[in-house]
Design a protein around this nucleic acid. Sequence first.
DNA 1: ATAGTTAGTTAACAGTATTTACTTATCAAT
DNA 2: ATTGATAAGTAAATACTGTTAACTAACTAT
Lengths: 407, 407
Amino acid sequence: MTFAPRPQAGDLSFLKQLNRSAVLEALRQTPGLTRAEVAQGSKLTKVTVGAAVQALLNEGWLQEGDLQRRGGGRPGRALYLNETRHALVGVEIGVHELHVVTCTLRGTILEERHLALLQTTPEETLDRLAILVEEILETPEIKQRECLGLGLAVPGPTSPSQRRLSLAPNLGWRDVALLDMLRERLPHLGGIWLMDNEAKAAAFGEMYFRNAHHPTPGSLLYISAGSGIGSGLVEGRPLRVIRGVHGLAGEIGHTVLQPSGLYCHCGNRGCAETLVSGWSIRAALGISEESELDKAIARHPEQNRVATTLKHAGEALGMLLLNLHHTLNPAEIVIGGSLTRLGPALMEPALTMFEEHQNRLLPDASRIVPRVLDDSRIVAARGIAAEILSQALSDTPASPRSARVEN
Amino acid sequence: MTFAPRPQAGDLSFLKQLNRSAVLEALRQTPGLTRAEVAQGSKLTKVTVGAAVQALLNEGWLQEGDLQRRGGGRPGRALYLNETRHALVGVEIGVHELHVVTCTLRGTILEERHLALLQTTPEETLDRLAILVEEILETPEIKQRECLGLGLAVPGPTSPSQRRLSLAPNLGWRDVALLDMLRERLPHLGGIWLMDNEAKAAAFGEMYFRNAHHPTPGSLLYISAGSGIGSGLVEGRPLRVIRGVHGLAGEIGHTVLQPSGLYCHCGNRGCAETLVSGWSIRAALGISEESELDKAIARHPEQNRVATTLKHAGEALGMLLLNLHHTLNPAEIVIGGSLTRLGPALMEPALTMFEEHQNRLLPDASRIVPRVLDDSRIVAARGIAAEILSQALSDTPASPRSARVEN
DNA sequence: ATAGTTAGTTAACAGTATTTACTTATCAAT
DNA sequence: ATTGATAAGTAAATACTGTTAACTAACTAT
């Protein structure tokens, strides 16, 4: 499939919108800047910034804070994204659980809900999900806010339109119009609606919600190691998620690590997923239930079979990371997903493999770092909320200056 | 390393520049459009387009063509990028050869020079290269034109600044400030100066110079299989080359295909480069000279050793393509580089491997296509020229309207 | 010929950011 | 306390850009 979209062009209102979102983006990345600091950081004059800030204050996107004393002259007033007016809804359909979160413009989690889920149909899952969302929307904390949109993170690749889930092997689903089906069940919820793969959503969120303490890298690859293994790459400015033509970018679980290895459900041999994934580790240990795995590990941490299985899985992960470093060379590789709960038993062999097999002529390597967000259950849900937020902030409908609200 | 660049913002002249380059880009992608058609294709009115076109005609960026009759009313006048006024210089330092090309705004090759090169120092190489460039600049065809810049494509990863070559194993060079060194040798040549890895440059060029007959895909991965094996990914609109933090993205030659395979010069085992590259194939056949390889293949095309070596190399390439499809899922994978001269002996096993090992649950796959540009020697040189051109067209210095030239 | 249609231009206009000048608010030295 | 220096933020005039509306130009169909 080919496309030749219109070359970017715009009128004066487009320029105004661009500058408004530049102001919002500056304050999102660095909360508490003053008008003058925003002006210095952009290519805009303080007059333009002042006008834009005034409008954004009137419209409820920004709020003012304390006076900031920085040296000699008149102190400026700190500006922040308004935490109190809007809400974003992020939803993840996991293999074993549903997760719903709401957060503010600054990424602060307001409410969260979790629901264990047995393997079932898309329809039943969405019925329950809709109830969960309705419930969270009725919370006093949320009800008073304007909802900017809802995002849905799913455990499999999405169609190019990002309205259908192409395949979710661990749910047994295939080519389901999940987004529209959820929307039918939540007819009153307006705003922006988005769907994305959970690893790509998580990648976006990890990148987007970085702050001064965890600075934003130039590019970030999120590895989601759970029942299967997927990844998401976020790159450059403005942030771009690499999705591929068919939405299959990041399906690293079917990268071949051992040409004569075990057979994978995809039909090939030695896929990464046959070595480092929830199901492959359980299969190697002869465990059928998800919950049994932790027990087995807790009970016999040094038991030969458990230890070597995790070691082999970790080494395979390390090899996978090496290959990804050589093909994508992201500034950071963030390891996430439910398998991270296995801790050093998995990660130490992985890191050892990664470090010992660097190209000896090219010692630079991607940094491998842990998640910033601690709770693995809400990474993807908050990530897809971040995708909503990013869209919302870059397209705040601007009214002409003549319609300015006087105060 | 982290960066937090200024959020994009701009003044009125920025908007004007944006619209000017939208007009240029529309005419580059679809030569022969009329003012009215450009206006329909962008979000601009015909008045704005008319004014921009007038200015661009005056400044020599555009030229008018024949009247276009399309239905009822007054015919419009065809517009084209001006082929006669500017020139771009693209240079490739290959492992065995230097290539210099010049081309027009529409990518038409004006002149080319090639020079065989024995392994030598950067200094001597650049001395010879500078002479070659001076020579081509003195050609009557070029001398009358304005040179917009020079691009340099190199057989190895570049530093993040893209001013240094980090490593070129096949040349024995390491961390050389090639761009500045070349510039010192060509002090009179102004304009834009750029350096990039040859595979990335080729990828950009293959994407950028597509036309109605070879439509532009959504994303493109160029595989450069030569002495080593590298790749370049170009993605999205506006076009973006994925380079990685340290410029190491696309170094797929050091992706591991056989964990217990042959040792590679990078220190690891079973790298792609140990299976599918000029040196690995020669090593497998016990041939030391580059030129001997073609002779050996021509002499004994069905000889067991030759055939099985190429088959194994091809299968390894197919496996590599599979992994790249699963991690990047580009719309197109273009196979280039000097190894393509081996033809079906290499490519057939590769394509067979690729097709037979698709994920049986996800039948969509990246399309594997041959180069559009026939001559493999100038792909990278023309590609880096395209990078220059892309920069030049998006930043044509616009003068205020009051300074308009009357005619 | 005449009406209808589309391309392109002109002049008046509306909207945006900037420049310049000004007010406000703090600090530091007297 | 008073004064001067410095910086933040605002107001009015200005310059620049794209748009709207009206017009001319050029061709087709009847």
